[in-house]
């Protein structure tokens, strides 16, 4: 008994400590970013001013004056929202079909979808840029970014939804069939209410992935459809290292998604760790 209580006491201290350490390690870049955004560009690179400095709002004021922050932000909101919506619009029926009417090839299709995530994005950079610019004429449009973000996230979204749907007892769906519910009614009245938690966390994750996407949004836009990723990128390159200003822009870019994640973390954790129906 003594040993058990000792080890659990040890665990009682160690586990939260480890959690805090890991949490802080992950949080440190955000913390550093937040601090730096309130420093002058000169102070930002000096180690002695890491914690002690005279805070200034200059970076933010400067940003508001010189860059069209809201245009980038609105582009981010538009592309992310529509991409998430479109992904779910395609993903829910797809996952539904695979979970409740599987064929011999369902497993293969799931694996194939996952395999598309293994393709290095850089490998198709040139054809993507060339085709969208010269042939399709969709370069730097919201449409293109929405489609690209959707396609990037579709495999992972279908996989997640498939897993959640799989946990819904097949008999409940069958009971619906006996009750004469239509396919759409089956999704709307039975499936979605039961998989609500899983659906919410999938949507949230998809939203976060879309918002944070930088590789394609930076390379397939110039001005019209440029998102916040492009704003950060644009601030880095031409004028050298202005850490203070860059940090302020970055804060403004990641801020909304961090806040969203913070408010939804309970939903996220629940969705990612528990099944849809318990």
């Amino acid at each position: 008994m003594a040993i058990v209580s000792q080890s659990s006491k040890f665990g009682n201290i160690m586990r939260p400590t480890m959690a805090w350490v890991v949490g802080l390690v992950f949080f440190f870049p955000i913390f550093w970013l937040a601090f730096t955004s309130f420093k002058t560009d000169a102070d930002a690179v000096k180690p002695e001013f890491l914690f002690f400095f005279t805070p200034t709002l200059d970076n933010y004021l400067n940003m508001a004056e010189n860059y069209d922050y809201w245009r980038f932000a609105i582009n981010s909101v538009i592309t992310t929202t529509f991409a998430t919506g479109f992904t779910l619009f395609v993903g829910v029926p797809a996952a539904y079909a695979m979970a409740f009417n599987p064929s011999r090839h369902t497993k293969d299709i799931l694996m194939w979808m996952l395999s598309t995530k293994m393709l290095p994005a850089a490998a198709v950079l040139y054809p993507m840029t060339f085709l969208t610019k010269n042939f399709l004429g969709v370069f730097d449009t919201h449409f293109l970014i929405i489609i690209v973000l959707s396609l990037i996230n579709l495999p992972i979204v279908i996989w997640m939804l498939f897993t959640y749907f799989k946990e819904i007892p097949k008999e409940i769906i069958e009971a619906g069939k006996m009750d004469g519910v239509s396919t759409w009614g089956e999704i709307k009245d039975i499936l979605l209410p039961l998989a609500w938690g899983g659906l919410a966390s999938t949507a949230l994750l998809c939203f976060i992935f879309c918002w944070n996407e930088a590789y394609w949004t930076v390379r397939l836009t110039t001005t019209e459809a440029a998102t916040l990723s492009k704003l950060i990128e644009g601030n880095r390159a031409p004028e050298g290292l202005f850490f203070g200003r860059l940090s302020a822009v970055s804060m403004a870019a990641v801020g909304p998604i961090v806040v969203l994640g913070w408010f939804c973390q309970k939903q996220l954790v629940q969705g990612l760790t528990f099944g849809a129906v318990k």
């Binding site: 007892p169 008999e171 409940i172 069958e174 009971a175 619906g176 069939k177 006996m178 009750d179 004469g180 519910v181 039975i190 209410p193 039961l194 129906v277």
Partner: peptide, 20 residues
């Protein structure tokens, strides 16, 4: 004929009630 149009009703082993 679709299940609901056959004039049959089924009671499942697991009850299969709609939980929500």
């Amino acid at each position: 004929v679709a299940p609901s149009k056959r004039g049959v009703a089924m009671v499942f082993q697991t009850y299969a009630l709609y939980p929500h």
